[in-house]
Amino acid sequence: MTDQRVIPVKHVPPPPPASPTVGMIRTLGLVSAICGLIIVSAYQSTYDAVAANKRIATERAVFKVIPAAKSIVEYAALPNGGIQKLGAGDTATPSGAVGFFAAYDEHGRLAGIAAEGGAKGYADTVRIMFGYSPACQCVVGFGVVAMRETPGIGDKIIKDREFLANFAALDVKLTADLSALANEVMAVKHGTKSNPWQIDAIAGATITSRAVGRAINDAAQALLPRLVPKLEILQKAQKS
């Protein structure tokens, strides 16, 4: 196209008046300064409330999956096998680390581990939180963090009693050498659950149910082999 654009220009429009560069810079600078001031003051004045809200939201999610819990500590399981305590202000987890929450009951004993997982559901990623009990090596609680599943069908995973009964004691044992899950956690067709590591899907909401199964499986697969050898450290952590 560029070759053809040799257009004889007959009428040359008068050049636009020189732009008031100084004025533009001054205005933009002033606007930026004012706006920056407003944003910073808004951030400062809401910081505490936002942080408190976030903490309450996390605690509520953890307490839901581990009812005995009274306080939580956030940890990250590092790729080299270690675990690291995360402070309240730490937002950036070390690369490759898997975050989880250690929940302690009122006597300071380890009540369970809560972790987040996610998998693609029918509409979008279903993000869930599950509670892991070291005593029985099983998932003992389940909650949804965020999802956009079809109301009335997929969102039954929050309320359906039969479905939630799967998470009374969902088996996530590790193999003998603690390197992987002994059995893959997965959702099976409604009414065909035969093993403790299977999830009985909701009839009509199979895709969402499968997403929950995959989310738990993937998260447990990533976290538990690193976590289980360190459980004793976590148990001591609160007493000290």
Binding site: P20, G23, M24, L28, L30, V31, C35
Partner: peptide, 18 residues
């Protein structure tokens, strides 16, 4: 004080702030 060349940019910055 806003020159018309940068008015849209100015408005957007102001709106984004709020």
């Amino acid at each position: 004080m806003v020159p018309k060349e940068v008015r849209i940019a100015t408005y957007i910055v102001i709106i984004a702030t709020f």
